[in-house]
Amino acid sequence: MNMRSKPFIAFTLAVVLLGTAFVCGCTDSGTGPAETETISVTGSTTVLPLAQLTAEAYMDTHPEADIQISGGGSSVGVTAVGEGTADIGMASRDLKSEEVTNYPDLVQHVVAKDAIAIIVHPSNTVSDLTVDQIKSIYLGDITNWQDVGGPDETIVVVGRDSASGTREYFHESVMDKEDFTTSQLEKNSNGAVRQTVAQTPGAIGYVGLGYIDATVKAVPVKTGSGIVDASVATVISGEYPIARGLNMFTDGEATGLAADYLAFIMSPDGQALVAEEGFVPVA
């Protein structure tokens, strides 16, 4: 072979390779990665950790799904889904009458049950409280722990802000819709309530069951039938008096990824995660 033939051979090979690539491209079966589908879920900080846990588990087996979770409170969640700025709204309470009027197409999905636990600083020696005593503390009528069997210490009342579904439920079921004391410290999440109580020896607060940890002490509630701890078992049995459902709302019946995600939460695997997060399964 002479030297002048080499450029010709190289050119011929390039043409063949280019043609092969073109044919392969034209006969591609279209089996590339699926298009990502995104939904947004927002609202209650009580439901938030459950939503995050179940979304992560769902996306682990559905790589084409993108479930974006954020908090803000139950009122934020209901408004967002009602106004169409979110696909799912989380709420730790039922809809208010004005929300039913404003957003008549919202569909309720009860994904778990929860207890509202009364928490104090771990050093507090109070052994239990009745619902009436809790109400009196939050009204501002009882201001020292020694009046309810605790230490001689001023009570620091900690609660939630007006966007909170936990506050709304507490206001109805414990306070009988009477006003909270004006000295109440209002926090925008369960985590913020827990942190404040953990750092304040005289404080009292209320949080969802999943937020109880070693940094705070959960105070049992004294009822007519005995002293009852806030727990999954006492919510299931109906013994614990301050318990409610946890909800996700959709605008109309859920479709697409939202429907599939909700179905996963209600599946045995999803409800196992409900229990893992410290809430009460409903299915």
Score class of each variant (00 low, 15 high):
residue 273 L to Y: 04
residue 276 E to G: 01
residue 110 V to H: 08
residue 119 I to M: 02
residue 229 D to A: 13
residue 46 T to E: 03
residue 75 S to G: 14
residue 241 P to T: 02
residue 67 I to C: 01
residue 271 Q to T: 08
residue 159 G to I: 07
residue 75 S to D: 13
residue 69 I to Q: 04
residue 282 V to D: 12
residue 49 P to R: 10
residue 134 I to Y: 00
residue 251 D to M: 05
residue 206 Y to L: 11
residue 28 D to T: 13
residue 140 G to W: 06
residue 267 S to C: 01
residue 152 D to W: 03
residue 200 T to D: 08
residue 164 S to R: 01
residue 90 M to L: 11
residue 221 V to C: 01
residue 126 V to T: 11
residue 176 D to M: 06
residue 178 E to L: 11
residue 58 Y to M: 06
residue 144 N to Q: 10
residue 190 N to P: 09
residue 7 P to A: 09
residue 54 T to C: 12
residue 133 Q to G: 03
residue 8 F to K: 13
residue 38 T to M: 08
residue 246 L to I: 11
residue 49 P to M: 12
residue 90 M to H: 02
residue 20 T to C: 12
residue 273 L to F: 04
residue 112 A to W: 07
residue 158 V to T: 13
residue 146 Q to L: 12
residue 30 G to M: 06
residue 158 V to C: 09
residue 132 D to F: 05
residue 61 T to R: 09
residue 36 T to H: 05
residue 71 G to H: 03
residue 166 T to Q: 11
residue 186 E to R: 15
residue 41 V to R: 00
residue 17 L to F: 11
residue 107 V to H: 00
residue 32 G to Q: 12
residue 219 V to R: 05
residue 216 V to T: 11
residue 55 A to S: 14
residue 229 D to C: 04
residue 13 L to V: 13
residue 272 A to S: 15
residue 23 V to C: 03
residue 138 Y to R: 03
residue 59 M to H: 02
residue 223 T to V: 07
residue 168 E to W: 14
residue 62 H to K: 10
residue 210 G to S: 14
residue 276 E to C: 05
residue 260 D to W: 07
residue 134 I to A: 00
residue 100 V to I: 15
residue 162 S to T: 15
residue 46 T to N: 00
residue 226 G to I: 09
residue 5 S to V: 13
residue 124 N to Q: 05
residue 208 G to C: 06
residue 61 T to Q: 13
residue 198 A to W: 14
residue 117 A to H: 01
residue 33 P to F: 08
residue 29 S to P: 11
residue 83 E to W: 05
residue 277 E to H: 10
residue 58 Y to F: 15
residue 46 T to W: 00
residue 191 G to V: 09
residue 64 E to L: 04
residue 153 E to V: 13
residue 28 D to Y: 12
